[in-house]
């Protein structure tokens, strides 16, 4: 699946200071019935975001016009649970390009990276600083520099480095995916099979 190349993003962030945000909250199972990859953003955080009658819950951050931007900041153990890639699609489709947390579940992290959504792991202390900065000024911006692997609070200049596998970094920077890579390797794979 083609996605936008990722280099540098400067944007305000949407805070979601809840721990263990699982994939059933990100996109409930009843919205997994599509056979194409589109429109999942409408149902992102469906049951936290909307009342039963479909009206928005005013106190949920995505419905609060104070908050905006391409960066979602979540509590620790973000993305636990199911392997549904729809979770990463929904976050991307909504318009986020970066998810920040102090800890991500493995499968979610892999799915995000395969879909142009950058998971940034920061220390619990730095995560708190980000939440505090947003609380002080919802319009405050953050700079995510993939090349330098840094996440910076623009207002204070406080910065932290994040890890990313060099191969995945290359893929994100160039909008490439693993399937292109594997298809190129077919002969080698066929040899491995017969060995």
């Amino acid at each position: 699946m083609a996605y936008d190349k990722f280099n540098k993003i400067t944007s305000p962030a949407v805070p979601l200071p809840i721990e263990n945000v699982d994939t059933d909250q990100i996109i409930p199972a009843r919205f997994l019935k599509a056979v194409e990859r589109k429109g999942f953003g409408d149902n992102l955080f469906r049951d936290w975001r909307y009342e039963k009658d479909g009206s928005p819950k005013a106190d949920f951050p995505l419905n609060d016009s104070t908050y905006s931007g391409k960066i979602l900041v979540g509590g620790k153990n973000f993305g636990s649970g199911s392997s549904r890639e729809h979770a990463a699609w929904a976050i991307y489709d909504y318009g986020f390009r970066v998810v920040v947390s102090s800890f991500f579940a493995d499968i979610f992290k892999g799915n995000a990276l395969n879909n142009g959504l950058l998971p940034v792991v920061v220390s619990p202390e730095f995560l708190q600083k980000i939440f505090t900065a947003i609380e002080k000024d919802a319009n405050t911006t953050f700079e995510v520099d993939l090349k330098k692997q840094t996440f910076t609070i623009s207002a204070t200049g406080e910065t932290t480095e994040f890890d990313i596998n060099p191969y995945k970094k290359h893929c994100l920077q160039n909008g490439l995916d693993d399937i292109d890579y594997l298809v190129e390797m077919k002969e080698q794979i066929a040899e491995f099979e017969t060995a």
């Binding site: 890639e85 493995d106 499968i107 892999g110 395969n114 890579y181 594997l182 298809v183 794979i189 099979e193």
Partner: peptide, 22 residues
């Protein structure tokens, strides 16, 4: 282990996936 849909496509296309060793 469980995989995402991109990885399902990888297996269908190449019988392989790309994974860091846990």
């Amino acid at each position: 282990f469980g995989i995402g849909t991109s990885e399902v496509e990888m297996v269908l296309a190449s019988q392989c996936i790309m994974q860091p060793k846990p």
